[in-house]
Protein backbone atom coordinates (compact mmCIF):
# COMPACT_ATOMS: atom_id res chain seq x y z
CA UNK A 1 0.00 0.00 0.00
CA UNK A 2 1.42 3.38 -0.95
CA UNK A 3 1.71 6.05 1.67
CA UNK A 4 -0.29 9.22 0.94
CA UNK A 5 1.92 12.16 0.04
CA UNK A 6 0.16 14.28 2.65
CA UNK A 7 -1.75 12.76 5.53
CA UNK A 8 -3.52 15.00 8.02
CA UNK A 9 -5.15 13.54 11.12
CA UNK A 10 -7.46 15.52 13.35
CA UNK A 11 -5.38 18.68 13.01
CA UNK A 12 -6.60 21.53 15.19
CA UNK A 13 -5.16 24.99 15.69
CA UNK A 14 -6.24 27.50 18.32
CA UNK A 15 -4.85 31.01 18.51
CA UNK A 16 -4.82 32.99 21.72
CA UNK A 17 -7.28 35.87 21.62
CA UNK A 18 -8.85 38.51 23.80
CA UNK A 19 -7.41 40.56 26.63
CA UNK A 20 -4.20 38.98 27.98
CA UNK A 21 -4.70 36.12 25.53
CA UNK A 22 -7.06 34.38 27.93
CA UNK A 23 -9.46 33.30 25.19
CA UNK A 24 -8.91 31.03 22.25
CA UNK A 25 -9.90 31.44 18.67
CA UNK A 26 -10.16 28.21 16.71
CA UNK A 27 -8.66 28.61 13.28
CA UNK A 28 -8.72 24.98 12.23
CA UNK A 29 -10.93 22.26 13.62
CA UNK A 30 -10.14 18.55 13.50
CA UNK A 31 -8.97 18.54 9.91
CA UNK A 32 -8.57 15.05 8.55
CA UNK A 33 -7.70 14.57 4.90
CA UNK A 34 -5.08 13.14 2.63
CA UNK A 35 -3.51 13.96 -0.66
CA UNK A 36 -2.32 11.03 -2.73
CA UNK A 37 1.01 10.87 -4.47
CA UNK A 38 0.98 12.62 -7.84
CA UNK A 39 -2.34 14.26 -7.12
CA UNK A 40 -3.21 17.93 -7.60
CA UNK A 41 -5.36 18.88 -4.67
CA UNK A 42 -7.09 22.24 -4.47
CA UNK A 43 -7.86 23.76 -1.15
CA UNK A 44 -10.83 26.06 -1.52
CA UNK A 45 -12.22 28.50 0.95
CA UNK A 46 -12.77 32.17 1.65
CA UNK A 47 -10.21 34.34 3.38
CA UNK A 48 -9.72 33.27 6.98
CA UNK A 49 -11.16 29.80 6.35
CA UNK A 50 -8.04 27.99 7.55
CA UNK A 51 -6.26 27.25 4.26
CA UNK A 52 -3.08 29.15 5.07
CA UNK A 53 -3.17 27.89 8.65
CA UNK A 54 -3.16 24.31 7.38
CA UNK A 55 -0.24 25.01 5.08
CA UNK A 56 1.73 26.82 7.77
CA UNK A 57 1.15 23.87 10.09
CA UNK A 58 2.41 21.48 7.42
CA UNK A 59 5.55 23.59 6.96
CA UNK A 60 6.28 23.91 10.69
CA UNK A 61 5.81 27.69 10.69
CA UNK A 62 3.18 27.29 13.38
CA UNK A 63 2.49 24.32 15.62
CA UNK A 64 -0.76 22.38 16.01
CA UNK A 65 -2.83 22.56 19.18
CA UNK A 66 -3.67 18.90 18.62
CA UNK A 67 -3.59 16.32 15.87
CA UNK A 68 -0.79 15.29 13.57
CA UNK A 69 0.28 15.32 9.96
CA UNK A 70 2.76 13.50 7.80
CA UNK A 71 4.30 14.38 4.49
CA UNK A 72 5.76 11.52 2.45
CA UNK A 73 5.29 9.34 5.50
CA UNK A 74 7.41 11.54 7.77
CA UNK A 75 6.09 13.70 10.60
CA UNK A 76 5.92 17.43 9.88
CA UNK A 77 8.31 18.09 12.77
CA UNK A 78 11.07 16.44 10.71
CA UNK A 79 12.81 19.38 9.05
CA UNK A 80 14.96 17.12 6.85
CA UNK A 81 11.80 16.17 5.02
CA UNK A 82 11.73 19.74 3.65
CA UNK A 83 14.30 18.60 1.09
CA UNK A 84 11.40 17.03 -0.77
CA UNK A 85 8.93 19.87 -0.29
CA UNK A 86 8.51 23.20 -1.97
CA UNK A 87 6.43 25.92 -0.36
CA UNK A 88 5.12 29.22 -1.65
CA UNK A 89 3.79 31.36 1.20
CA UNK A 90 0.76 33.57 0.74
CA UNK A 91 1.75 37.05 -0.50
CA UNK A 92 5.41 36.14 -0.35
CA UNK A 93 7.96 38.67 0.75
CA UNK A 94 11.67 38.14 0.44
CA UNK A 95 14.90 39.85 1.39
CA UNK A 96 14.53 43.05 -0.58
CA UNK A 97 18.25 43.81 -0.53
CA UNK A 98 18.88 40.74 -2.70
CA UNK A 99 18.33 40.29 -6.39
CA UNK A 100 16.14 37.41 -7.55
CA UNK A 101 19.26 35.48 -8.64
CA UNK A 102 20.92 36.01 -5.26
CA UNK A 103 17.80 34.96 -3.38
CA UNK A 104 17.41 31.76 -5.35
CA UNK A 105 21.13 31.03 -5.00
CA UNK A 106 20.85 31.58 -1.23
CA UNK A 107 17.91 29.21 -0.93
CA UNK A 108 19.60 26.64 -3.19
CA UNK A 109 22.50 26.45 -0.74
CA UNK A 110 20.26 24.72 1.79
CA UNK A 111 19.91 21.75 -0.55
CA UNK A 112 23.62 21.21 -0.85
CA UNK A 113 23.93 21.94 -4.57
CA UNK A 114 27.34 22.76 -5.98
CA UNK A 115 28.03 26.31 -7.18
CA UNK A 116 27.72 25.28 -10.83
CA UNK A 117 24.46 23.46 -10.22
CA UNK A 118 23.07 26.38 -8.25
CA UNK A 119 23.86 28.73 -11.12
CA UNK A 120 22.23 26.44 -13.66
CA UNK A 121 19.12 25.92 -11.54
CA UNK A 122 18.72 29.62 -10.79
CA UNK A 123 18.92 30.51 -14.48
CA UNK A 124 16.49 27.75 -15.40
CA UNK A 125 13.98 28.78 -12.76
CA UNK A 126 14.13 32.47 -13.61
CA UNK A 127 13.42 31.57 -17.20
CA UNK A 128 10.60 29.27 -16.20
CA UNK A 129 8.80 32.00 -14.25
CA UNK A 130 9.49 34.66 -16.86
CA UNK A 131 12.04 36.67 -14.90
CA UNK A 132 15.19 35.95 -16.89
CA UNK A 133 15.68 39.63 -17.66
CA UNK A 134 14.92 40.79 -14.10
CA UNK A 135 17.22 38.42 -12.27
CA UNK A 136 19.77 41.10 -11.45
CA UNK A 137 17.28 43.61 -10.08
CA UNK A 138 16.91 43.98 -6.31
CA UNK A 139 13.65 42.55 -5.02
CA UNK A 140 12.70 45.88 -3.43
CA UNK A 141 11.98 47.06 -6.97
CA UNK A 142 9.73 44.10 -7.80
CA UNK A 143 5.98 44.33 -8.25
CA UNK A 144 3.64 42.02 -6.34
CA UNK A 145 3.23 39.81 -9.38
CA UNK A 146 6.98 39.54 -9.88
CA UNK A 147 7.46 38.60 -6.22
CA UNK A 148 4.83 35.92 -6.69
CA UNK A 149 6.85 34.52 -9.57
CA UNK A 150 10.04 34.56 -7.51
CA UNK A 151 8.08 32.79 -4.79
CA UNK A 152 7.07 30.10 -7.21
CA UNK A 153 10.64 29.76 -8.49
CA UNK A 154 12.05 29.26 -4.98
CA UNK A 155 9.35 26.68 -4.25
CA UNK A 156 10.24 24.45 -7.19
CA UNK A 157 13.95 25.23 -7.40
CA UNK A 158 14.99 21.85 -5.98
CA UNK A 159 12.42 19.78 -7.89
CA UNK A 160 10.48 18.74 -4.81
CA UNK A 161 8.19 15.73 -4.69
CA UNK A 162 5.50 17.70 -2.91
CA UNK A 163 4.68 21.31 -3.76
CA UNK A 164 2.56 23.37 -1.39
CA UNK A 165 1.37 26.63 -2.88
CA UNK A 166 -0.60 29.16 -0.90
CA UNK A 167 -2.66 31.28 -3.30
CA UNK A 168 -0.21 30.93 -6.21
CA UNK A 169 -2.36 33.03 -8.55
CA UNK A 170 -2.75 35.92 -6.14
CA UNK A 171 -1.51 39.27 -7.43
CA UNK A 172 -1.01 38.05 -10.98
CA UNK A 173 -2.42 39.52 -14.16
CA UNK A 174 -4.25 37.19 -16.60
CA UNK A 175 -1.02 36.39 -18.45
CA UNK A 176 0.79 35.67 -15.21
CA UNK A 177 -2.07 33.45 -14.05
CA UNK A 178 -1.94 31.53 -17.27
CA UNK A 179 1.82 31.05 -16.92
CA UNK A 180 1.53 29.88 -13.32
CA UNK A 181 -1.27 27.55 -14.32
CA UNK A 182 0.99 26.10 -17.01
CA UNK A 183 3.78 25.60 -14.48
CA UNK A 184 1.40 23.79 -12.13
CA UNK A 185 0.20 21.60 -15.01
CA UNK A 186 3.83 20.83 -15.86
CA UNK A 187 4.52 19.86 -12.24
CA UNK A 188 1.47 17.65 -12.39
CA UNK A 189 2.67 16.00 -15.58
CA UNK A 190 6.02 15.37 -13.89
CA UNK A 191 4.15 13.37 -11.26
CA UNK A 192 4.64 15.80 -8.39
CA UNK A 193 2.08 16.08 -5.65
CA UNK A 194 0.54 19.53 -5.51
CA UNK A 195 -1.49 21.05 -2.72
CA UNK A 196 -2.58 24.55 -3.48
CA UNK A 197 -5.05 26.92 -2.01
CA UNK A 198 -7.14 29.32 -3.95
CA UNK A 199 -10.40 31.14 -3.95
CA UNK A 200 -10.37 31.37 -7.73
CA UNK A 201 -12.64 28.48 -8.49
CA UNK A 202 -12.01 28.17 -12.19
CA UNK A 203 -8.34 27.56 -11.45
CA UNK A 204 -9.29 24.75 -9.11
CA UNK A 205 -11.69 23.25 -11.62
CA UNK A 206 -9.04 23.41 -14.31
CA UNK A 207 -6.05 22.09 -12.35
CA UNK A 208 -7.25 19.81 -9.59
CA UNK A 209 -7.84 16.11 -9.44
CA UNK A 210 -9.68 16.70 -6.19
CA UNK A 211 -10.71 19.70 -4.17
CA UNK A 212 -11.39 20.18 -0.49
CA UNK A 213 -13.68 22.97 0.58
CA UNK A 214 -12.88 24.54 3.93
CA UNK A 215 -15.04 27.14 5.62
CA UNK A 216 -14.72 28.48 9.14
CA UNK A 217 -11.83 26.13 9.91
CA UNK A 218 -13.90 23.06 9.07
CA UNK A 219 -13.55 20.84 6.04
CA UNK A 220 -16.94 20.82 4.35
CA UNK A 221 -16.31 18.32 1.61
CA UNK A 222 -13.68 16.61 -0.49
CA UNK A 223 -14.10 15.22 -3.97
CA UNK A 224 -13.49 15.68 -7.64
CA UNK A 225 -14.51 19.16 -8.77
CA UNK A 226 -17.33 17.68 -10.87
CA UNK A 227 -18.37 15.38 -8.01
CA UNK A 228 -18.68 18.30 -5.67
CA UNK A 229 -20.82 20.12 -8.22
CA UNK A 230 -22.68 16.93 -9.06
CA UNK A 231 -23.73 16.54 -5.46
CA UNK A 232 -25.97 19.52 -5.85
CA UNK A 233 -27.41 18.97 -9.37
CA UNK A 234 -30.41 21.19 -9.63
CA UNK A 235 -32.48 19.59 -12.40
CA UNK A 236 -32.64 20.03 -16.17
CA UNK A 237 -32.78 22.96 -18.49
CA UNK A 238 -34.73 22.69 -21.75
CA UNK A 239 -34.19 25.31 -24.42
CA UNK A 240 -36.91 25.48 -27.08
CA UNK A 241 -38.55 27.65 -29.66
CA UNK A 242 -42.33 27.85 -29.75
CA UNK A 243 -45.18 29.65 -31.42
CA UNK A 244 -46.62 32.12 -28.89
CA UNK A 245 -49.99 32.13 -30.64
CA UNK A 246 -50.50 28.44 -29.97
CA UNK A 247 -53.02 27.91 -27.16
CA UNK A 248 -51.39 24.55 -26.27
CA UNK A 249 -48.08 26.18 -25.44
CA UNK A 250 -49.50 29.01 -23.32
CA UNK A 251 -49.35 27.02 -20.05
CA UNK A 252 -45.74 25.93 -20.67
CA UNK A 253 -44.60 29.36 -21.80
CA UNK A 254 -45.97 30.85 -18.60
CA UNK A 255 -43.38 28.79 -16.67
CA UNK A 256 -40.50 29.44 -19.08
CA UNK A 257 -38.10 32.35 -19.33
CA UNK A 258 -37.61 34.03 -22.67
CA UNK A 259 -34.14 34.68 -23.96
CA UNK A 260 -34.03 36.12 -27.47
CA UNK A 261 -36.10 33.93 -29.72
CA UNK A 262 -35.78 30.97 -27.38
CA UNK A 263 -37.38 29.92 -24.18
CA UNK A 264 -35.63 28.23 -21.22
CA UNK A 265 -37.51 25.94 -18.92
CA UNK A 266 -36.08 24.48 -15.69
CA UNK A 267 -37.67 21.20 -14.61
CA UNK A 268 -36.85 18.50 -12.06
CA UNK A 269 -34.92 15.55 -13.55
CA UNK A 270 -37.79 13.12 -12.92
CA UNK A 271 -40.31 15.17 -14.92
CA UNK A 272 -38.00 15.73 -17.92
CA UNK A 273 -39.61 13.24 -20.30
CA UNK A 274 -43.13 14.30 -19.37
CA UNK A 275 -42.30 17.94 -20.13
CA UNK A 276 -40.57 16.99 -23.38
CA UNK A 277 -43.71 15.12 -24.43
CA UNK A 278 -45.83 18.16 -23.62
CA UNK A 279 -43.55 20.44 -25.64
CA UNK A 280 -43.56 17.98 -28.53
CA UNK A 281 -47.34 17.84 -28.47
CA UNK A 282 -47.50 21.65 -28.49
CA UNK A 283 -45.28 21.73 -31.58
CA UNK A 284 -42.30 23.34 -29.87
CA UNK A 285 -38.84 22.92 -31.36
CA UNK A 286 -36.44 21.64 -28.72
CA UNK A 287 -32.97 23.02 -29.25
CA UNK A 288 -31.12 21.83 -26.16
CA UNK A 289 -31.51 19.71 -23.03
CA UNK A 290 -28.87 20.00 -20.35
CA UNK A 291 -28.33 19.25 -16.70
CA UNK A 292 -28.33 22.33 -14.50
CA UNK A 293 -24.97 22.16 -12.73
CA UNK A 294 -24.29 24.75 -10.12
CA UNK A 295 -20.80 26.13 -10.47
CA UNK A 296 -18.22 25.45 -7.84
CA UNK A 297 -18.70 29.07 -6.89
CA UNK A 298 -22.38 28.57 -6.16
CA UNK A 299 -21.63 25.46 -4.15
CA UNK A 300 -18.95 27.33 -2.30
CA UNK A 301 -21.24 30.27 -1.49
CA UNK A 302 -23.87 27.85 -0.30
CA UNK A 303 -21.39 26.35 2.17
CA UNK A 304 -20.25 29.77 3.37
CA UNK A 305 -23.86 30.82 3.98
CA UNK A 306 -24.59 27.53 5.72
CA UNK A 307 -21.60 27.99 8.01
CA UNK A 308 -22.65 31.55 8.82
CA UNK A 309 -26.19 30.40 9.56
CA UNK A 310 -24.84 27.68 11.86
CA UNK A 311 -22.59 30.17 13.64
CA UNK A 312 -25.51 32.56 14.07
CA UNK A 313 -27.68 29.73 15.42
CA UNK A 314 -24.98 28.77 17.92
CA UNK A 315 -24.67 32.40 18.97
CA UNK A 316 -28.43 32.77 19.48
CA UNK A 317 -28.51 29.47 21.36
CA UNK A 318 -25.59 30.59 23.48
CA UNK A 319 -27.34 33.80 24.43
Amino acid sequence: MTVPAIQIEDLTKDYPAGFLNTKKKRSLESLTMQVEEGEAFGFLGPNGAGKSTTMKLLMGIIFPTSGSAKILGRPISDVEMHKDIGYLPEQPYFYDYLTASELLDYFARFYGFSAAERKARVEKMLKKVGLETAGKIQLRKYSKGMLQRVGLAQAILHQPKVVILDEPMSGLDPIGRREVRDIILELKRDGRTILFSTHILTDAEMLCDRVGVIVGGKLQGVGRPDEIVGLKAQGMEILFEADTGNAKTAAILAKAAKSGSRYALHVPEESLYLTLDELKAAGAKITSVAQIKPTLEEYFMHLVEKDRAQAAAIEVHGK
Binding site: M59, E80, H82, Y87, F107, F110
Partner: peptide
Protein backbone atom coordinates in the same frame (compact mmCIF):
# COMPACT_ATOMS: atom_id res chain seq x y z
CA UNK B 1 10.79 36.54 5.08
CA UNK B 2 11.21 33.64 7.50
CA UNK B 3 8.32 31.65 6.01
CA UNK B 4 10.14 30.70 2.83
CA UNK B 5 13.39 30.13 4.70
CA UNK B 6 11.93 27.82 7.34
CA UNK B 7 10.38 25.78 4.54
CA UNK B 8 13.92 24.87 3.53
CA UNK B 9 15.77 22.07 5.31
Amino acid sequence: TLYALLAKP
